[in-house]
Design a protein around this nucleic acid. Structure first.
Length: 541
DNA sequence: TCACAGTCAATAAT
DNA sequence: ATTATTGACTGTGA
């Protein structure tokens, strides 16, 4: 039996560099059923001793972080991160070490978590775990000391290594990792490349040029949920892989949503916000025109003129949508037929009017990567005459001739599929039926844990049916079922509204919370659990 | 296959 | 040296 010691952060994150595939899914997974598990389980368990020692609380092991994350309703992530930041700062502890040792996350992730914590109700259970860990860490008396110790340890290790020559993989202290190693040429998957053994296919992060970014932002403003046709069109225009385009859209959507968590009182920003992105279906012609303008401006700005004004975007979006709507009503535009000059001119006009008051200037004009200005906009003819394309009717013909091809076919596959984004699945409890989450096999467990009384309690109150369940469960625990805690409480916090209702949870929480100190205050994390976890030497120190 | 949530990890910026 | 940003990837679910 392996009791997963609750607080253990997802181990690794330290050792394996590239091997993204992750151990978690390891062997299991028989053929069929995919229903993988994820979450905390299976870790090597250091020290079998004490493991079961403490864990007698009603023979129920203390909740795992996952469970806590699932059962905790409402936690102020902002407060937690503030405390953490403060603690790290005053003790001179870096995000890197904190992330690795406490959260099991990389520096970048920690940074994001700390600086832009998503509100609790927006987090999935998985996403809540780091916050639970932070909370637990905060309530750990020796938290700082331990990290400090670890820090020293590492420093010495690296020092030693440096002086003793290149090889010599430190070792003593489990927590190796460290800077400068990382070449584990292991790069498993693709294989093919590698060969030379030297440059393990690095990741090579492709940087977009300002122009490309601008184009993407524009496209996003016009249609945050582009369909395949649009994606392809963009990929073509910008000379990027479609995969890259979709990645960008995904990332952008997510990151946009992530910020602006405040402003609770009414006031829903009109960020794209999922599906019904009504507005127009994205018109390549329109896109080109707008883009051209943007690029011109961009260029202008680059050449001195610092008329730059920040924040073009949010407003920009609204404007674009607006624009789109008006254009939609126009004859040829988006109609399907290649636009003629008159129309184009009209479009431009419209556009100008609409955009008149806005500031479309680039906010982030910093870091210009040496005027590669037009190299990426395919045929380059984009920027040729910067003599203010608008108004003149000269350049249109040539330019749009080229475009009409794209546009043409584009418009064809357009409007087919416009799939609506799946509903957000925050804390999707569910376990609707079938195997769903659990997968630890036995449904008994699920049922048992699921919903109300779940952990803690079985002594007091209720439940008609569970008598025997209890037993089942016991057996299971004893048996092996490592994960099993996959319980899926009826958290169902379902985004907005009703977010704080689920009484079942409340109950559970209360149950768990009985006794013990309470300095953790603000949080409703069960302090009991916290204590247990804490002294169970949970972290990676 | 798409969207999404989380993360990683290479770079940028401080 | 740290922290912030961000393109890409993995695991899920529909």
């Amino acid at each position: 039996m392996l009791l997963t010691s609750p607080g253990l952060p997802p181990q690794h994150a330290i050792p394996l560099p590239a091997a993204t595939s992750n151990p978690t899914s390891g062997a299991s997974t028989p053929a069929g059923q995919s229903s993988e598990k994820k979450q905390p389980m299976m870790m090597p368990i250091h020290s079998p001793h004490q493991a079961n020692a403490m864990r007698n609380m009603h023979q129920h092991m203390s909740p795992t972080v996952y469970e806590m994350a699932a059962l905790t309703q409402d936690l102020d992530t902002q407060v937690i991160t503030t405390k953490i930041k403060e603690a790290l700062l005053t003790n001179n502890i870096g995000q890197k070490i904190f992330g690795e040792a406490v959260l099991g996350l990389s520096q970048g992730s920690v940074s994001e978590l700390l600086s832009k914590p998503k509100p609790w109700h927006m987090l999935s259970i998985k996403g809540r775990e780091p916050f639970i860990r932070m909370q637990l860490w905060l309530s750990d008396a020796n938290n700082v000391d331990r990290l400090q110790a670890l820090k020293n340890e590492r420093r010495e290790a690296s020092k030693r290594r440096r002086s003793t020559g290149p090889n010599q993989q430190d070792n003593s202290s489990d927590t190796s990792s460290n800077d400068t190693n990382d070449f584990y040429t292991s790069s498993p998957g693709p294989g093919s490349v590698g060969s030379a053994g030297a440059p393990p296919n690095k990741k090579q992060r492709v940087l977009f040029s300002e122009e490309q970014k601008e184009a993407l932002r524009l496209a996003f403003a016009l249609d945050p949920y582009p369909n395949v046709g649009t994606i392809e069109f963009l990929a073509n225009e910008l000379n990027l892989a479609t995969r890259t385009i979709t990645n960008w859209f995904h990332n952008h959507r997510m990151r946009l949503k992530q910020q602006v968590p405040h402003g609770p009182p009414g006031q829903e920003t009109n960020i794209p916000t999922r599906e019904n992105t009504n507005s127009t279906p994205f018109d390549p012609v329109q896109f080109r025109i707008l883009l051209q303008q943007r690029l011109l401006e961009l260029q202008k700005e680059r050449m001195g003129l610092g008329g730059n004004n920040p924040l073009p975007y949010p407003p920009y979006f609204a404007a674009a949508a607006l624009l789109g709507r008006s254009l939609a009503g126009m004859p040829g535009a988006a109609g399907g037929a290649a636009p003629n000059e008159a129309e184009l001119r009209a479009l431009n006009q419209k556009f100008q009017e609409q955009m008149a008051g806005l500031d479309l200037s680039m906010s982030s004009l910093k870091r210009e990567r040496s005027d590669d200005f037009d190299d990426d906009l395919d045929d380059g003819h984009m920027s040729e005459n910067e003599n203010d394309s608008l108004d003149g009717e000269t350049e249109k013909s040539g330019e749009f001739k080229a475009l009409s091809n794209h546009a043409q076919q584009f418009l064809n596959n357009m409007r087919l599929n416009r799939r609506k984004p799946a509903a957000p699945q925050w804390v999707n409890p569910a376990v609707p039926s079938g195997q769903a989450a659990g997968q630890s096999g036995e449904s008994a467990t699920e049922r048992l844990l699921n919903g109300e009384e779940s952990s803690t309690s079985h002594h007091h109150h209720q439940q008609q049916h569970e008598e025997d369940m209890e037993q089942n469960q016991r057996e299971e625990e004893a048996g092996d079922a490592p994960h099993h805690l996959v319980m899926e409480p009826e958290v169902l916090i379902k985004q907005e509204k009703e977010d704080c209702e689920s009484d079942s949870l409340k109950e559970a929480n209360e149950g768990m919370a009985r006794s013990q100190d309470e300095d953790v205050a603000s949080a409703s994390v069960t302090s009991a659990a916290a204590a247990a976890v804490t002294n169970a030497s949970a972290w990676n120190y």
